[in-house]
Every structure is written in C-alpha cells, then in structure tokens.
Amino acid sequence: MRKEDTVKLISAEGFEFVVDKRAAMVSQTIRNMLTSPGSFAETQLGEVTFPEISTTILEKICQYFHWSLQYASGKESEFHIEPELTLELMMAANYLHT
C-alpha cells in the first residue's frame, strides 16, 4: 500500500496506528481533518494525534473502522465491545463522529 493511501493515528501514549485512509474516513472528524482546504499539518503529513484517546481505545476504534467498511460492503458480522471499554469508547466515538 502506498503512503498516500494510509494515515497515521497517534494515541495519547504515542502509539502509532497506520490505517487505510478509506477506513479512517469512516470518522467524519478525521475526514474533515484530512480533506479540509489549507495546509494543516494533518493534511500534509497524513498524521493525526489524539491526546485524549488512549491506546486501547484507539486500537478498538481502528478495528471498528475496518468492521464498518466490511459491514457496508454487505459482510454482516458482530462487532464485539467489552463492557469495560464502553464508556471511553463512547466518548471517543462521539468526538470522532463515527
């Protein structure tokens, strides 16, 4: 996969997740960051830092992005969420508009 097709999402602890740009665009917030006109650092480097989102939650978010793409293409499966993650994940999802 070429570098232009991926985007790097960085968690509060500094962990980096390299995901397919298409998948990351499931989030309306990330989509706006990456496609907004003007030379924002996010648009140029293809990197987004989330100082509010922990690594565990960001990992779950990335899993959801891919599940969501698959679900949209007709592959129906269940997306399992551990109950102890629900509160944090809910807030992150709310922030990311996903």
Binding site: F79, P83, E84, T86, E88, L89, M90, M91, A93, T98
Partner: peptide
Amino acid sequence: SVLVRLCIESACSSRDSVERWRMQRRT
C-alpha cells in the same frame, strides 16, 4: 453515531456488563 449505539447496547446488555463499567466514576 453507529459506534455510540453499539457501545450503549453493549453497556446495557446485562446486569453483569453494567457491573463492569459502573465503577469507572471519573469517566
């Protein structure tokens, strides 16, 4: 948001799942 709804479903799926998040007071 679909993910928010999934989270709420998971959080409210049973008494047991409620027990697993209700102590996260700060969150």
